[in-house]
Design a protein around this nucleic acid. Structure first.
Length: 891
DNA sequence: ACAGTATTTTTTTTT
DNA sequence: AAAATACTGT
């Protein structure tokens, strides 16, 4: 046991107070880099040693599994191996654990499936097809977003149904939705049906994990009592990113609303009043509103929890004053926030470095060369460098540049390992084995690998299932009653026998998931199909499958009581950042990730890329003040990741889905005080020309073109910085690096882990024997294409239209393909190519169509030039027509 | 039933 | 530019 002094001796007064605070409810307002993780772990240790609590009485919620593992590790250092017995996990993992134990009470049988986004989309598609919903207009994604909103706010399907579609019964067939779209009705019906089918399939989605746990606690006093008795201390990290459901969950677990008298000294075992709650967060770092996070949870904490105490941590131990000044200046543009003053004792440090590139490729190339130089001239380790961007798609050009420069990197995020097709297929088998009622996964594997069971066979089985109120697999079991053609019946029987055999095998080997994986891979034919193929991509798919098997083996080794269901759980809840190496572990490579993933991390050197209007802030967030405020918080998060050196870069032209577009500098750049930024290149060549800066000329601007006049000779630094180097002649260091760049490019297949010289040859999954879950793990991400030619350079710079005014909404301009400009569109009304305007139409209008003849307009969607009208052509059916191109005439 | 071809959409951010 | 989807012909 540690002495009290060990726990608080090296803390500042606020931190120490937070660690020791005795009381019902504590909010720690932890500014970026203020040592909140340290305070949190110390507080837990304090509760154990000084309050005399048992480890099993503590529930600590973190944001990711990796954060949980890290916290547990640090706790082990403080209090010893008892830390292993504490609940330290994410909301979702904790809920799974609770539901596995007590879910039966609310109808969740053991072995329930956890649906990921793709599974949910499949389910909504199935429902949409059955209910005759126009899935073009109501995309599964948008429907799911709505359902997720309901869930995050704990609005049940029953109440929705009562309000909007009282006569719909879940599971009923042939329901006619109101033809002209009562939208609420549609959502209510789909929501109800969705929950119904999840229940039938013994499955839950991500949101359900929280919602159904709340339901369990509210509906089953015995269960609630058990957990309230058990957890006497609840600590929640990143509280600003909790949603309403999670907020309620915390209250239910703590028993805040159980109507018992608070016990001022309830520090020991036993059920005495509500549990003590500690939450940690920073409202300036709330960046998950899009998935329901409600900033009010943290803002109203003091009202929500009586006698709450707030302690603010404002000393920053991470960054230089320059970086903090920039962060403070940017976030100050958000309205309605409590002003906060982060300060540091680390001194001014280096200026922020800015760079304006001509395009994304050049931006990336400059970053690569800059990193190479830092490495050589200032001895900066690659693992001390992170490159961040708004959206995953931006990683492409960066990866290419790093490969070209031969620098080792690791990419975090992108397509997750478990979301890759082949891995998902294998998992679907496992899921279907554990939970045969899981229709979505069962249907997925019916014809994977190809075994001649197509849409026809599937619908036969579905019909049986529908009429008998049975599951899809029940239908398969009753092949002989389906009246299927001989061929189909034979194949179905083979599938039935396969699944039966696999299930028996699984039951017999439940403690050995890796063996079950192996059995599934070989018996299902999954592996064979890929091995037989000569598509080079399939080789990497085989790799991935074998990686899946090693992950299973690792799980098996480090889990006390392994089971197939347990293994599936771990695969369902991985986060992007879980792939990061643990602290203390050195990957030896540059880290690439989105700003969201970067939350909670810190690096000596940070590149913030793509600082353009439309990229960051993202174009879809610029209209709305609150969304823009969230983007700004994201910028704040990004800036405050940097410890010593911060770079901000942008590209004047960026290709977005195939088309090059001119990009204006991000407004966030303007919000950083100019004197903090040392611009290595303030304007891109094109911009300079336009602004009459002279010197322009873009013809000869080949790849190395950035080492132009404003680059050399500028010296900055000094000032007692850690890296203390001076920039001198800056050229040429770029490409002489990597030995193995060509082999690295080749190895792109499949993994997307570290490339480059220091890592040597090809990267494969798990090459370095990292373990899944705790220590970094190596399942990769992102598929790969051949990295070769650096993509086309955008050639035609648009003829010189307006300057670079920074106001107004229009932020990007398409570069016209030189030819004569299109006929002007009249502003306001959206006129289409055939001269028809959506504004001219009304529901009920009659039109003629060259092919379908006479029809009646049933619906209108104004999407500007892409407006769509829906027309009922009677016997020819109802068609959706693109107004701009449809051969129609108004009558 | 499926392979191959044409067309359409896609980009936020993630547990 | 790439991937998902729809369509067409065998």
């Amino acid at each position: 046991m540690r002495a009290a002094d060990d726990l608080i001796g090296d803390l500042n007064p606020q931190q120490a107070e937070a660690v020791q605070y005795r009381g019902q409810a504590l909010l720690i307002g932890a500014g970026a880099g203020s040592g909140k993780t340290r305070v949190l772990t110390r507080r837990i240790a304090w509760i154990l040693t000084q309050f005399g609590a048992w480890p099993s009485q503590i529930l600590a919620i973190t944001f990711t599994n990796k954060a949980a593992a890290e916290m547990r590790e640090r706790l082990t250092g403080l209090i010893g191996p008892v830390a292993q017995r504490m609940w330290v996990s994410t909301f979702h993992s904790a809920c799974v654990r609770i539901l596995r134990r007590d879910g039966e009470q609310i109808g969740l049988k053991s072995g329930f499936s956890i649906y990921d986004t793709a599974d949910c989309e499949r389910l909504v598609k199935l429902i949409g097809a059955d209910l005759n919903i126009d899935l073009k207009r109501y995309t599964p994604r948008s429907i799911l977003a709505r359902i997720s909103d309901y869930k995050n706010n704990l609005q049940g399907w029953r109440e929705q149904l009562n309000t909007y579609a009282a006569d719909y019964k879940p599971g009923q067939k042939g329901y006619q939705l109101g033809r002209f779209g009562n939208v609420e009705e549609l959502y209510a019906v789909v929501y109800a049906e969705y929950q119904h089918r999840l229940a039938m399939a013994n499955a839950v989605d991500f949101d359900d994990l929280i919602v159904r746990t709340v339901e369990l606690l509210r509906g089953c006093p015995m269960v609630a009592e058990y957990y309230r008795h058990k957890f006497r201390y609840i600590l929640v990290d990143e509280y600003q990113d909790t949603n309403h459901a999670q907020y309620v969950l915390v209250r239910e677990l703590a028993g805040v609303d159980a109507g018992e008298r608070p016990q001022p000294d309830a520090v020991a075992a036993g059920r005495q009043g509500p549990a003590w709650i500690t939450v940690v967060g920073d409202s300036d770092q709330s960046i998950y509103a899009f998935r329901g996070a409600d900033i009010r949870n943290i803002q109203d904490f003091e009202q929500d929890f009586p006698n709450a105490k707030t302690i603010m941590l404002e000393q920053n131990y991470r960054s230089t004053q320059t970086i903090l000044d920039a962060a403070n200046a940017v976030i100050a543009h958000n309205e309605g926030r409590k002003p906060k003053k982060l300060w540091t004792a680390l001194g001014k440090g280096e200026p922020i470095v800015g760079y304006a590139a001509d395009n994304a490729q050049q931006e990336a190339a400059w970053i690569a060369s800059e990193i190479a130089r830092l490495h050589v001239e200032a001895g900066v380790a690659y693992s001390d460098v992170a490159i961040m961007y708004r959206a995953n798609a931006q990683s492409r050009s960066l990866e290419e540049a790093l490969i070209k420069a031969g620098l080792p990197y690791q990419l975090i995020g992108g397509t997750r390992f478990y979301e890759r097709r082949e891995v998902k297929d294998a998992i679907a088998y496992l899921q279907a084995i554990v939970n045969p009622a899981d229709d979505v996964n069962m249907r997925r594997i019916l014809n994977v690998p190809k075994r001649g069971l197509g849409a026809r066979a599937e619908s036969l089985v579905t019909m049986y299932a529908d009429t008998h109120a049975a599951t899809f697999f029940d239908g398969v079991l009753h092949v002989d009653e389906l009246g299927a053609p001989t061929r189909t019946a034979t194949q179905l029987r083979a599938f039935r026998d396969l699944m039966t055999a696999l299930r028996e095998f699984a039951v017999a080997h439940d403690g050995k998931p890796s063996e079950i994986v192996a059995e599934v891979l070989s018996k299902s034919g999954l592996l064979e199909e890929l091995q037989r193929s000569d598509d080079p991509q399939d080789a990497s798919r085989v790799e991935n499958l074998s990686q899946l098997q090693s992950v299973a083996a690792e799980y098996e080794q480090k889990t006390p009581d392994p089971s197939l269901a347990g293994f599936l759980e771990t695969t369902a809840l991985v986060a992007d950042s879980d792939q990061l190496p643990m602290q203390g572990e050195d990957s030896g490579s540059i880290t690439l990730m989105t700003l969201h993933t970067a939350k909670g991390l810190e690096y000596p050197v940070v590149f913030l890329t793509g600082l353009e209007q439309g990229t960051f802030p993202h174009s879809r967030s610029m209209e709305d003040t609150s969304e823009l405020a969230e983007e700004r918080r994201l910028a704040y998060v990004g800036i405050t990741r940097a410890q010593r050196r911060l770079y901000v870069t942008r590209a004047a032209v960026r290709a977005q889905w195939g088309q090059a577009a001119e990009m204006m500098p991000s407004q966030f750049l303007d919000e950083i005080p100019d004197e903090l930024i040392d611009w290595k290149r303030r304007e891109a060549g094109m911009e300079r020309m336009r602004g009459g800066w002279g010197n322009g000329g873009f013809g000869d601007d080949e790849f190395g073109g950035w080492d132009d006049d404003d680059f050399g000779g500028v010296s900055y630094g000094g000032a007692g910085s850690t890296f203390g180097s001076t920039y001198g002649s800056a050229r040429g260091t770029g490409s002489s690096y990597g030995s193995g760049s060509s082999s690295a490019a080749r190895s792109g297949y499949g993994s997307g882990r570290s490339y480059g010289s220091s890592y040597g040859s090809r990267s494969t999954y798990g090459g370095s024997g990292r373990s899944y879950g705790s220590s970094g793990s190596s399942y990769g991400s992102r598929s790969s294409k051949s990295y070769g030619s650096s993509g086309s350079r955008s050639s035609s710079y648009g003829s010189g239209s307006s300057g670079s005014g920074r106001s107004g909404k229009v932020t990007t301009r398409r570069i016209a393909p030189s030819s004569g400009s299109k006929p002007k569109q009249n502003p306001g009304a959206s006129t289409a190519g055939n001269g028809l305007s959506i504004a001219d139409f009304q529901i009920g209008d009659k039109i003629t169509h060259d092919k379908f003849g006479l029809g009646t307009v049933v619906d209108l969607q104004d999407k500007g030039p892409k407006s769509v009208i829906t027309v009922d052509f009677g016997s020819d059916g109802v068609k959706r027509l693109m107004l701009a191109v449809a051969p129609i005439e108004k009558l």
